[in-house]
Design a protein around this nucleic acid. Structure first.
Ligand code: MN
Ligand code: MN
Ligand code: ZN
Ligand code: ZN
Lengths: 120, 120
DNA sequence: ACTAATAATAGTAACCATTACTATTTAAAT
DNA sequence: ATTTAAATAGTAATGGTTACTATTATTAGT
């Protein structure tokens, strides 16, 4: 993969926020630095960065959000302010439970907790 | 809400499968009984049934799936055969954990476990 | 430095799941 | 039976994402 300033910018934008941004948010941020950058370029590079393990993608209902944090973790989503907070849940117990009851070999847990955050 | 044979059919289709079908799958099934049923009618009624608490909606990556099972539960998704299995995870521990560590008042856990099911 | 090869881009069209619109049909209350 | 408005079929529009294509930019070899 060869260098491009567009990809470098997109990577830095994702790595510079904890807000789990959407592609469109990243696109608007990027336009401030490269005014004619294309939305297609944003999507293409987000997917490329994800395939190379540089960033993570997850879905919030039906839209993609991008995450600089590539180590397996979970999210708390506040119903009042929309904030998405990183957490690491202990899933060892759940893994055992699933194996015991269903003979299901779990290799990934995706947990989204909705509720009310500590700002309210 | 007044009766319609379309809505009745859609409800029965969702309640007659454990497969967590998509709207399009339901649409095709419905066409066998009402050949000129419209995809818009399927979506409209699925949303209406959901609002009335008759069925559940959840998102599998970026597409909606419908579920007859309206009591809070979780899903095991097999990476080999795609099957989605209903389970009830114990989230009381997680709830405590989230409150202790983040002062986050959890009211719903959405857990999707991916792995390999007992058919393989 | 110059050239050649080709990866990456901007701009635009296409795609797919879902929702919105509208004229017509239908359930059901009177 | 008549009336009223909810529901429908058919179609257009929307929003997020991917695909296409002519042009531009990076990089390896000379
Ligand atoms: Mn995160
Ligand atoms: Mn289910
Ligand atoms: Zn909040
Ligand atoms: Zn399986």
């Amino acid at each position: 993969m060869r260098f491009s300033k567009q990809r470098e910018l997109i990577k830095n934008i994702v790595q510079g926020t904890n807000s789990h941004p959407t592609a469109y948010w990243i696109f608007n941020k990027a336009k401030k630095k490269i005014s004619n950058i294309s939305l297609g370029t944003v999507y293409r590079n987000l997917n490329k960065l994800n395939k190379d393990g540089i960033i993570d993608i997850f879905y919030d209902n039906n839209i993609a959000r991008y995450d600089w944090n590539t180590v397996s973790h979970d999210h708390l989503k506040c119903n009042k302010c929309g904030k998405i907070i990183d957490v690491k849940m202990h899933t060892k117990e759940l893994q055992k439970e699933v194996w015991k009851q269903y003979k299901f070999e779990a290799d990934n847990f995706e947990i989204t907790v909705s509720g009310i955050c500590n700002n309210h």
